[in-house]
């Protein structure tokens, strides 16, 4: 069975209670992956990160190094995919 690696950073790590896990799947999309990931309060990660079928603006998902657009949650998951979830970093000030 194909498997994808999911790495969860920051707020999404706290939601899931882990930072990295390998997930087996069959014919799944990114949305399916998010639905299958249960957060510490019993809801799916999909419920937390997705609103009306689109990735919420506060979060980002990177698949194999490329940021997923908010309407690309139906992208098919491939074996060996590296999926990273994170909250958007809006504060990076200096200089």
């Amino acid at each position: 069975m194909p498997a994808a690696n999911i790495s969860a950073l920051g707020a999404t790590r706290k939601m899931l209670g882990f930072s990295r896990r390998t997930v087996e799947f069959q014919r799944a999309t990114i949305a399916d992956l998010l639905l299958s990931l249960e957060t510490v309060d019993g809801r799916s990660l999909y419920d937390k990160l997705v609103c009306e079928g689109r990735l919420r603006g506060d979060y980002a998902i990177v698949v194999n190094g490329l940021s997923l657009k908010s309407d690309q949650l139906n992208k098919p998951l491939q074996g060996e995919d590296e999926v990273v979830t994170m909250a958007i970093l809006r504060h990076l000030h200096g200089g």
């Binding site: 790495s7 950073l9 920051g10 790590r13 930072s19 990273v84 994170m86 970093l89």
Partner: peptide
């Protein structure tokens, strides 16, 4: 985790820092 983002390790997860 923030350094993972700023350093660009999210694009190459094998380098992600362990929290």
């Amino acid at each position: 985790d923030l350094l993972n983002i700023v350093c660009g390790f999210t694009a190459k997860p094998k380098y992600l820092l362990d929290p």
